[in-house]
């Protein structure tokens, strides 16, 4: 009997839908992290905090002024992008100019960003309390064939998918999209062929941060948010970059699908409490077995 139940679980379109929604969120977050990590070669552990901030923008707008999260999403993207530009213009650019400072940050980048992330989390906890928060928006349930799915999930999935496709097209066809990929692969070479690295870097930060904030608003439509929700997303995004490869945006999307499937099906087949074990397990295995995923081909070959 148990066996049969398991098989039907795997085939359940319900789970497939859940995995797709999660994968879409993950893809947005991971593409953003991939861009920023690729450009800086520094692990931004505070990336998940941008997701959290995006979530709070949507929550705040809805709870305070009844603004639809769809409109808040635009604000969130703008706020994320602005934050990225500000961070780059005030700190990162200066960092790249001073080799001494860059060396110091590189060695301890993780501690620095971890410290930043602790600060952001607790500032938000002071402002909004540490409680979980949520709001109901389009929470009717649609039935499509045998799948029952909340309207807000379907909408979030649609928006995230459109954003991912737009990103893919942008990186493939737009001039600055191609320049971004070039910088991620080889910064010096990119500069040599005439790419204005500084200008593209600003765009990288704007886009990467904006995507994370967008993901946050979408997450807040479908789940509860809290000041401490960010870190698991950061971890997932890292796993995805390692699986999919640095600078490989299609790889990020595939990696997101893989991780979401492992999480959703693993939790369903074994137990919900197993979910974190699975994510961290994949994370550890990926770091130990495929560190070159984080380094990109050009560096790994050295």
């Amino acid at each position: 009997m148990e066996e049969v139940a398991d098989v039907s679980l795997i085939l359940s379109p319900q789970l497939l839908a859940a995995a797709l929604v999660l994968a879409a969120f993950y893809a947005l977050i991971a593409i953003g992290l991939n861009l920023v990590y690729g450009a800086m070669r520094l692990l931004n552990v505070a990336h998940g905090e941008l997701v959290m901030l995006g979530g709070y923008i949507a929550y705040w707008g809805f709870a305070r002024w009844g603004i639809s999260p769809l409109i808040s999403a635009v604000f969130a993207v703008a706020a994320g992008a602005l934050l990225g530009v500000l961070l780059y213009a005030t700190i990162i650019r200066r960092l790249f100019r001073s080799t001494r400072m860059l060396a110091r940050v590189e060695a301890n980048s993780l501690l620095v960003f971890f410290g930043v992330s602790v600060v952001i989390q607790n500032v938000m906890a002071v402002a909004f309390t540490a409680d979980q928060r949520g709001f109901s928006y389009m929470d009717g349930v649609l039935t499509i064939g045998s799948v029952r799915i909340e309207e807000n999930r379907l909408l979030a999935l649609a928006i995230a998918t459109v954003a991912c496709v737009a990103c893919a097209l942008f990186f493939r066809y737009a001039r600055s999209g191609m320049a971004m990929r070039a910088i991620i692969q080889q910064r010096e070479a990119a500069a040599l062929v005439g790419i204005d690295v500084d200008r593209i870097n600003i765009q990288v930060f704007a886009l990467g941060f904006g995507l994370a904030a967008l993901a946050g608003t979408l997450v807040s439509m479908t789940a509860q948010i809290s000041p401490f929700m960010g870190f698991p997303f950061t971890v997932s995004a890292f796993v995805i970059i390692i699986l999919g490869g640095l600078g490989n945006l299609l790889g990020s999307i595939l990696g997101a699908l893989m991780l979401a499937a492992v999480e959703v099906y693993g939790a369903a087949l074994i137990s919900p409490s197993f979910r974190s074990i699975l994510v961290y397990g994949v994370f550890i295995a990926a770091l130990l077995l495929r560190p070159q995923g984080l380094l990109g081909r050009s560096i790994a070959a050295r």
Partner: peptide, 28 residues
């Protein structure tokens, strides 16, 4: 044994990840 081959920021995040992994394993 496996982790101390990983260097720099990767070691830092790896130790954090392992600590969280074991935490959830104990919870389970």
């Amino acid at each position: 044994w496996p982790c101390l081959r990983v260097r720099g920021p990767y070691f830092v995040i790896l130790t954090l990840g392992i600590s969280e992994f074991i935490k959830y394993a104990v919870i389970s």
